[in-house]
Design a protein around this nucleic acid. Structure first.
Lengths: 210, 210
DNA sequence: AGTAGATTGTTAAAAAATTAACGCTGTCAA
DNA sequence: TTGACAGCGTTAATTTTTTAACAATCTACT
């Protein structure tokens, strides 16, 4: 019913399968994929059941077919249109990373409040004033917003995106945005990841295992 | 026994409590903190039991004291020393974000393989050749490494860090690093977060609630 | 063709995480 | 002082997630 974790793993499987295909492999067993993903083989089979793919006993999964199933499950018919708000270091990093690299993730626009950036083309992507967000979101059919602004502005930006019709947000600002019904928000908290890593560097014994 | 999720929340509570203090608040109830953190109040009380803090019935938690408890739990005596490998967009973004901002997260060095960057000071932080990683890690007493290099180099870099004595890694390269015994690795997969957001923008009804 | 061995799909069990329940304590007002 | 209420701490229940178990199936080899 709430397969968030499953979705995360499926996204990971997609890349693993892609890499295996690139390396020339045609098929793989659940335990091979499991090794690469860092999970148990039973988890793989369980997840694959969820997305409705099937392998063959003693022959594993056909990777081409598997990729098709995963992408069919994960992606819709058309590519998903994203926008990024905030063209600081992080916004540029994300833009550089995804621009023209992922066939289902298309960054259609970036927004900033700095007038100097207005209409500039950054990494091949046009920068608009945040004031025009609502208009551009509709025009470009953008469904997902990435928030990469300073923490003070995050809530306001989220509101602007939602008002513009955004359904789903990935928030990099270090403040958890309150989720509202009918909206997906993923808070990616870099400080938290660093503090967690620091904690476990001092408390490795508190880790269960792997 | 494996309180990874709890650690994540505690890191979040730390910031929430800090913000409340900044806003002039002296104490808070579990349900107030819960609201801000996006969890249930019973979760708050449960987690606070874990870190060994205590409030008073009908008066909630003393925020100053709570912050002390949280930081005592989360941080060690000294600040934790980090390094970043890869001075591309993402590495710079992380450096800019943390440099001199967080009293317990100190970025002591950045590494890159580009000779042009060697010994340059970036955001107040010196850039070293990756070849000197082992030496610098020991000299600066660095325990945590942040990997922000292209995917092809991630595994090699991880090996270098581990060989140098790093205990804990935050990996931003889109390949899951295999965890070895006695090592903490956090894979932060940006592609996964974007794909997940895209998936739920098309399948909002599949979200449980919240 | 038959048998041995390996892997799948699925169900059941186990483990982990979250949420609820509730006795107890402290506060406030009459 | 007493009663009513509100909130904490803790334990128990629930829910979710992961792992194991195993019959069915396929491959390969003789």
């Amino acid at each position: 019913m709430t397969p968030k974790k499953t979705i995360e793993r499926i996204s990971l499987y997609r890349r693993i399968v892609g890499n295996l295909l690139l390396s020339g492999k045609k098929q793989a067993f659940s335990h091979e994929i499991a090794k690469l993903a860092g999970v148990k083989s039973s988890q793989i089979r369980h997840d694959f059941m969820f997305i409705g793919t099937n392998g063959r006993a003693n022959a594993g999964y056909d990777l081409q077919e598997l990729r098709g199933h995963i992408e069919g499950f994960l992606f819709g018919g058309d590519a998903d249109n994203f926008c990024i708000v905030g063209v600081g270091n992080l916004g540029r990093a994300i833009l550089a990373f995804f621009r023209a690299r992922h066939k289902n993730i298309v960054i259609k626009a970036v927004f900033d409040k700095d007038p100097a950036l207005k209409d500039r083309i950054i990494q091949g992507c046009r920068c608009y004033s945040i004031d025009d967000a609502s208009e551009i979101i509709k025009k470009e059919n953008i469904n997902i917003g990435i928030i990469a602004v300073p923490v003070e502005q995050a809530k306001l930006v989220a509101q602007i995106l939602v008002d513009g019709g955004i359904k789903s947000i990935v928030n990099f600002a270090p403040v958890p945005l309150n989720v509202r019904q009918g909206l997906f928000i993923e808070n990616v908290d870099l400080t938290m990841y660093l503090e967690k890593a620091a904690f476990f560097s001092r408390n490795l014994s508190k880790l269960s295992e792997v």
